[in-house]
Amino acid sequence: MSSRDAILGRIRRSLGVSGTDATRLAAVHHRLTETPVNVVPARGQLPDAERVELFVRKACEIFATVARLDSRDEVPAAVAEYLRDRNLPQAIRRGEDPRLASLPWEREAQLAVTIGPSVGRDLAGLSHADAGVAETGTVVLTSGVNNPTTLNFLPDHHIVVVDASTIKGDYETVWANLRERFGAGVMPRTVNLVTGPSRSADIEETLLLGAHGPRSLHILVVG
């Protein structure tokens, strides 16, 4: 007997159940297709403007930095400013995401924009989040043809653009949107929920930023 059959058989014997019991199958089918929502904290259930403010406050609490922009056209200048303020070279790597490609990069003549996945030589990476979660100041990034996951982890500085309209109160709303976009039960290869910059407390429980991932996370909230 294969280990698969042995394990499933032992589980069924221990539970005293059968794998073809219609009631059990129906219960599982219901849960997987209806995806009932459990307890959702009231914290993020706010009107639009306050929800974005909560997102910003929560992100800052966990050592991210945030800039609010009125329009997406301001992103290139905000990127250049961030790099200048930290004495970093005027260079950024990003994916082919049309939401980033369509920005007026030509306005920042000094800024060198490279495109594609990181191989570990970039000081700064730029990504576009699919969503934000106000509850904890989290950004949600999905992988895909235009969105390399390496940009989220290899550069020392990670700059993330998020549309204010995509900042939701809770994770459950984000899941619903993912299902709408990719189909029920289907996920992109990688979904990253990022809450602040990389950190470690493994040496004497001292909190240090910049363990293996980005040392800093800068969020540009547009709108």
Partner: peptide, 30 residues
């Protein structure tokens, strides 16, 4: 929501990552 609070007192750990299968056609990494 329970895990990080109970473990380290964080509201969320920094990286919660969902991995589904290998890289897809056209994916630049993974």
């Amino acid at each position: 929501r329970l895990l990080a609070r109970s473990a380290t007192g964080q509201e969320m750990s920094v990286y919660t990552t969902f991995s589904t299968g290998p890289r897809r056609a056209g994916d630049p990494d993974g």
